[in-house]
Design a protein around this nucleic acid. Structure first.
Lengths: 155, 155
DNA sequence: GGAGAATATATGGAAAATTATGGGTATGCA
DNA sequence: TGCATACCCATAATTTTCCATATATTCTCC
């Protein structure tokens, strides 16, 4: 299974190009993804990333719902905001301008490995976010139950 | 199968011509569709679009219903209003005037990727629709159960 | 163990190809 | 003849591809 770990800081040039961290590329190859899927996070000012294998699962799952239901429509908004991006021969993608704006990137992007996926943050914003997360974890006392078949939470 | 993602805004010229977004054309080629099928949306003031493959699924689904049921009859009206359109050598289609009127297009069309299909909207109308959808998704707390292996909760 | 070579990664710039879009001309049907 | 459709071409803007370089990392042989 592909696993995205650690954090990396890479530059975003004038054209919006940014290198995907080499270890992330390795993870993508493992899951046979030729490209990646990006979409704006519901909860935070960051971009969510997955291998493009993942999107097929989401599409199929939405398709399993009643076509005309509100539920299906709600979820389709995710797809409307998502983009599939090819990784070029230099290991880079071009970040669409709407994502650069949404995450308020200014020349630098922080790639954050989250196991099954990853996030792209503006470095300063991420630092603050991480500080808050750690604080909360300390207060609440984080616990984790390991399960065989895995559960994922996309935010 | 082909996946339609993201949103694009393209111009509709005086002749009713409009470019199909390149990524949508790529998706259509994948499913060996030579053209696209458009029909007015049941629920909204927009046009629904699909590749040939998807239409076949819809036809089969309707066929599986009780032949004389109201439901079957309702859905058959979709097929009656549908049009198959060829994509020309420049990647464009000609939008029939009845669709332009139905979606109230005025020179610009927003293409919205919804996974297995897509929609064509008047830009302003779509912006409003999307705002409503997001609001509702937040209220209802959109969740998605991934059908294959793992469970996903989108919040 | 260490110096230097070879490889991999990140990044910038320029050339080539694709896309979106407008206009024109022929063709056919009523 | 008039309208609508199909086909062809031109162009600007964008996107993709290719090449060059600097930095970092790994390897190898002494």
């Amino acid at each position: 299974m592909a696993v995205f770990l650690s954090t990396f800081e890479n530059k975003v040039d004038r054209k919006g190009r940014v290198s995907i961290p080499a270890s992330f590329r390795g993870a993508l190859e493992q899951e046979k993804s030729t490209g990646i899927i990006l979409y704006p996070s519901f909860k935070h000012a960051c971009i969510e990333g997955n291998g493009d294998e993942r999107i097929q699962e989401i599409v199929n799952s939405i398709d399993a719902l009643d076509v005309f239901s509100d539920e299906a429509e709600n979820l389709q908004t995710i797809l409307a905001d998502a983009r599939q991006l090819a990784i070029d021969s230099d290991g880079r993608i071009i970040l669409p301008s709407e994502f650069i704006e949404y995450a308020q990137l200014d020349g630098v992007a922080t790639f954050v490995g989250l196991g099954k996926g990853f996030q792209i943050w503006e470095p300063k914003t991420f630092t603050e976010h991480r500080a808050k997360n750690r604080e909360r974890a300390r207060k609440q006392g984080a616990t984790l139950r390991i399960v065989s078949s895995d559960k994922t939470v996309v935010t």
